[in-house]
Design a protein around this nucleic acid. Structure first.
Lengths: 202, 202
DNA sequence: ACAACTAGTGAGTAATTGATTACTTACTTT
DNA sequence: AAAGTAAGTAATCAATTACTCACTAGTTGT
């Protein structure tokens, strides 16, 4: 409940707002996060929020933008961290999960957004993020195939789906058990099975 | 928008209510489903609902109970459909996903429930369901190991986590793409990689 | 020090929500 | 057919929500 300093400049206040939402989402149903709750956590009154955002939806959009930026930065860094595509794949896998563990509210917000029926702008941001993400993974898998690090007969689309699905599955499980840190224990052991599933027949 | 007949007996009306909620959840954010929306879909007035349920939460609990019952029935049937544990595992995998495709609102409601912070009764139902589910899968994997159908050195806990995670991942992806039926296309190809990951070293 | 600007306050509003209730309608039993 | 019971209606309630605005407090440049 850090009582953020008063009278921040507008851009810093907007960032503080995004952080407040993500922190709140760690322990609250994202759909139930009210503007009053956001403001209170920052030590502000509710009306003050609308000095920096035209609507609540705009706040959510800002949050999704922040998430997309942060996550993709980590993914790309991990993907380029090693020359071996297969090793890079594992680095991406772990980097993604570390990001989630560091910000447990993030997957909850993302899942929450995907639930909405309306084609909202925030949902669009999630869409393009996941699309770029999938393309990066597919490229790594193709590279690994070219280097004979994985099975030449591997179904690349299925492998990409399973890669992302495995991460989302781990996240869901942590959501079920209410224990985020368990992800980091399960992650390497689960990835080992995945790697075996796509491995080159030695 | 089938206008359910008027003057149903109480138990039938309760079942109709559960079905209405699940149908609504297929195209609406479960958290945004109002008692008015449920009643309207059944061709009733909102107040009539509270003649059969003491509260909205009670409606959700009834829905979760229905889901747990239906899903576990299908899972157990699939698990016992063949003597080979590995084949049974694939049968469970497909049966689960077919259930989701038949009722697209179900995973949305389940995910929505897991988002709640409070330890609600409905959440408890989901918990025990997933626990029993996991135990059944773990048993099948252990049997498969005993029959040497899978790697004797396989990490059973990780394999169980990955099994459930893979399903949840596929469901999430369909939620992202807004196309439920794609699950049935991806499912066999994804399972093939999973099976390879746990397979016995021939 | 002082004006100009920005950030925050706090009291409001309209709309929506789950829930209650007095009343009416339909079915069942004898 | 009369009486009793179960099911549905329609109006209404209190609470909560996102959003607005006239005003005040703090910050900054000169």
């Amino acid at each position: 409940m850090r009582p953020t300093a008063s009278y921040l400049p507008a851009d810093e206040r907007r960032i503080a707002t995004v952080e407040a939402v993500i922190e709140l989402a760690a322990s609250t149903n994202p759909g139930d996060i009210t503007t009053t709750a956001i403001a209170t956590r920052m030590g502000l009154t509710q009306g003050a929020l609308f000095r920096h955002f035209p609507s609540k939806d705009a706040i959510i959009e800002a949050v999704m933008g922040w998430v997309a930026e942060q996550l993709m930065a980590r993914v790309h860094a991990a993907a380029n961290s090693t020359p071996s595509p297969l090793a890079a794949l594992e680095a991406v896998f772990l980097a993604h999960l570390q990001f989630v563990v560091a910000h447990p509210g993030v997957p909850r917000i993302v899942f929450g957004q995907l639930q909405h029926a309306e084609q909202t702008l925030a949902k669009q941001v999630v869409h393009t993020m996941l699309q770029r993400y999938g393309q990066r993974v597919a490229t790594l898998l193709a590279d690994a195939q070219a280097r004979k690090e994985v099975d030449p007969a591997l179904d690349l689309n299925a492998a990409t789906t399973l890669f992302i699905g495995t991460i989302q599955g781990l996240v869901m499980q942590s959501l079920i058990h209410g224990d985020v840190r368990r992800i980091l224990i399960d992650a390497p052991r689960v990835f080992q099975i995945y790697r075996r599933g796509i491995a080159a027949t030695a």
